[in-house]
Nucleic acid binder design. Structure first.
Lengths: 118, 118
DNA sequence: TGTTTGGTCAACCATTTGGTTGAATAACGA
DNA sequence: TCGTTATTCAACCAAATGGTTGACCAAACA
């Protein structure tokens, strides 16, 4: 359960990975669909997803031959809590996010990736 | 855009730099004093301070031959606000999130957080 | 069955990162 | 003026990062 701030902040330092996280905010996605909007190889995106997974920011679950990626809010929360020591920023309501994600998962209808951001 | 999330998160990804930030939470410090507890050269710490400065996380001011380092909370706040997008999902509207970020980032600190520990 | 699809692995490459050392600059104190 | 203190600069190094390509494996489908 030790969320490694090194890994978390390093993962967040890359714009591609931040974009991926924002995409996953809308919906869980398969690796191929995550990769679609980016102008890089699938292998490169796969590496980014590995980095996000090791940081604890997402989780990947394989169903059939499709690997689904979903946000995992605890790591972001750990980073947020560390940052709060530096000021009265508002704390993230990630418990609420988790409840929301569970609710969404129970009524899963995959809407395609809509590559926003950047 | 004044606060570059790439630079901010990359700066936060190093444990030495996070330690420096926590030290500065107590008080402004000269470069030499910042370097003292670390088992690395003064030049290495100086580089870390440059990285923190470019990220906007600290500011350095030279008085005489001493360069004082002090926390600059706005950059951290920008990162915190970005992360808060992951807790502010009551309506998952990424376009709205982007507008929100643009607005927040362009308007610098209103009553800024005062890093007065002790 | 053979072929496509989804995804990773392995090897490779260029660039960046985090550290070193020694020399340089600038300001203070004697 | 001379030496000391505070800090950076420059050159260098090893390791990590972010990307590529081609081979590979496993699941789905004709």
């Amino acid at each position: 359960m030790s969320h490694d701030l090194d890994l978390i902040f390093a993962a967040l330092a890359d714009p591609t990975r931040r974009n991926i996280l924002m995409m996953l905010l809308e919906d869980d996605m398969a690796v191929t669909d995550v990769a679609e909007p980016f102008e890089m190889s699938l292998a490169a995106v796969s590496k980014h997803l590995t980095i996000l997974t090791r940081a604890g920011l997402i989780a990947q679950e394989k169903r059939g031959r499709v690997k689904w990626c979903k946000l995992e809010p605890d790591a972001m929360k750990a980073a947020s809590i560390w940052m709060q020591g530096f000021g009265q920023f508002e704390e993230l309501d990630l418990d609420g996010l988790e409840r929301f994600l569970e609710k969404e998962l129970s009524s899963t209808s995959e809407g395609g990736p809509s590559a926003t951001a950047d």
